[in-house]
Design a protein around this nucleic acid. Sequence first.
DNA 1: CTTAGCCCCAACTAAGTCGA
DNA 2: TCGACTTAGTTGGGGCTAAG
Length: 303
Amino acid sequence: MTVKTEFSIKDLENLSSVKAHTIRIWEKRYNLLDPDRTDTNIRTYHLENLKKLLNVTFLYDKGYKISKIAKLSEQELLALVQKEAALDQEEFAIKALKTSMFDFDYGLFNRTYDQLLETHDFRSLFFEVFVPLLTDIGMLWQTGTIDPAHERFISELIKQKVIINIERAQQNFEQKHDPIFALYLPYEEIHEIGLLYVNYELISSGFKSIYLGANIPLDSLFHVLKHHPTIIFISYFTVQPERSTLPEYFQEFQSSVCASANCSLWIMGSQTHALDSKQLPKSVTKIANVEQLRSRLETLKKS
DNA sequence: CTTAGCCCCAACTAAGTCGA
DNA sequence: TCGACTTAGTTGGGGCTAAG
């Protein structure tokens, strides 16, 4: 069997569903393709032309203007196609994960997760799929579309995946950098996924961490500090402590936890977003997002 | 010689954008 | 918000060529 290497404009029309007329006008107006010609001026296309046209129509169907597509270089075109394809996959995965939530279907959840891992590392999976999923679920939960059992079910599964990845990172862990971090949640704070993910970031960046977990009163921190005087605490506030009591909380941290030692607390989470960094006590640092956390870790690595 | 397919050009239509 | 301009796709006509 011989492989077809030359195509007529009609072939391209059939393969791409773009009218031959339109292909000609795209060539004329935007120099989209540059086919060879026969002696009698008939267009003949190569496989490369076909591939390009299929990429162009893929983007075109996504709503990109033909004039914009035409301005892209070959590399830009390819990159954009890959990005859109990834978005497609992620959107599809989020739908599948929601379905798994409604059916309490572990199998579907795990299959979807494994599939995503073929094209994503855990970090991008977490941010491109899990975070949007959790945001959506937050909405559904507020509007009463789902009940708490669904929300718990999916959150626990996500938590498990973060934990598995922490464990994996711990297995070939070697502490490369100081200082040590201690992670905890304050009283009544129920959202643990964010903090777990922070733990994952720390360990995979070569920092040692002590994961204290939920419902940790401030005086427990004091005891940790006795063993590790240079430790940095990280906490994640999404519902607790309440915004109005935050200054009080920081005050108490300052006076009862780090009375004599020099210590610091990094705070993350939605409850902290409105805080003004300048008004915080000097031992307390607000970290707006994981991006900022990573750049701080980079700085620590260098020192 | 007819027919089908391709070429190019010009004109039309529809939708979107812009500026007074 | 209204008319002018821009963008993009379609339609049609006239001409050329190859095949039946």
